[in-house]
């Protein structure tokens, strides 16, 4: 038996919003420690890794590990049936081929349940080692979304350069070029408004702006986004999911021919 209850169904809605641009379907691996998801987009350029810890749920029970392959379009339709203030419970029997979503209004006067068929998905799992990154940048998530949106008007690629002074985002194309420099915040009153750089060595990498834009669909999950970079390895874009977990996007860099 698997059962996970979350008082704020809006978190689940936001998680889905954050992954459905990149993925059509995904397997939710449920264990005693929580719910994990790892999936690459169809082109194998980016990867989504999500973790929701069991202790972040209001109730969590997982007697046996289960992997639930879900069509994210169908899941989106079902979660649209939940009001933001509803309590959501996901339930499945061991070895089940369906999952049930139960939505309860805060006063318990309306209770709805939606059963969704599960899918058997062939999954490729990548082993991502724990890595010390040469540069770790934290900035307001809204600012990052704005930068990605603005620069994607110029070209298909965004160059991210990180030095101890700050971080620079650049793009160039047919209409011209654009550079956005963010300096490290000197006085930090509010952490969620700060730009911070932890740098071991400067890094410059090039990425497809289309994927960066997709990652920013997670903006509503967190005030802050963290970018981790090292020379010639994938970028990691991480958003915390409240006190319950995180979503990380990995993006392979573009390399000069």
């Amino acid at each position: 038996m698997f059962e996970a209850r979350l008082v704020q169904s809006s978190i689940l809605k936001k998680v889905l919003e954050a992954i459905k641009d990149l993925l059509n379907e995904a397997t939710f691996d449920c264990s005693d420690s929580g719910i994990q998801l790892q999936a690459m987009d169809n082109s194998h350029v980016s990867l989504v890794s999500m973790n929701l810890r069991s202790d972040g749920f209001d109730k969590y029970r997982c007697d046996r590990n289960i992997s639930m392959g879900m069509n994210l379009g169908s899941m989106t339709k079902i979660l649209k049936c939940a009001a933001n203030e509803d309590v959501v419970t996901m339930k499945a029997q061991d070895n089940a081929d369906t999952v049930t979503f139960v939505f309860e209004s805060p006063n318990q006067e309306k209770v709805s349940d939606y059963e969704m068929k599960l899918m058997n998905l062939d999954q490729e799992h990548l082993g991502i080692p724990e890595t010390e990154y040469a540069c770790v940048v934290r900035l307001p998530a809204g600012e990052f979304a704005r930068i990605c949106r603005d620069l994607s008007q110029f070209g298909e690629s965004v160059v991210i350069s990180c030095t101890k002074e700050g971080v620079k985002f650049s793009s160039a194309g047919d209409i011209g070029s654009a550079n956005i420099k963010l300096a490290q915040t000197s006085n930090v009153d509010k952490e969620e408004l700060a730009v911070t750089v932890e740098m071991q060595e400067p890094v410059t990498l090039t990425f497809a702006s289309r994927y960066l834009n997709s990652f920013t669909k997670a903006t509503s999950l967190s005030n802050v986004v963290q970018l981790s970079m090292s020379p010639d390895v994938p970028l990691v874009v991480e958003y915390r999911i409240g006190e319950i977990g995180h979503i990380r996007y990995y993006l392979a860099p573009k390399i000069e021919d």
Partner: peptide, 14 residues
Amino acid sequence: TPIQNDLHEFYALV
């Protein structure tokens, strides 16, 4: 123009 890499070039399958 730079060439887009694949994630398989960086991480092994497990």
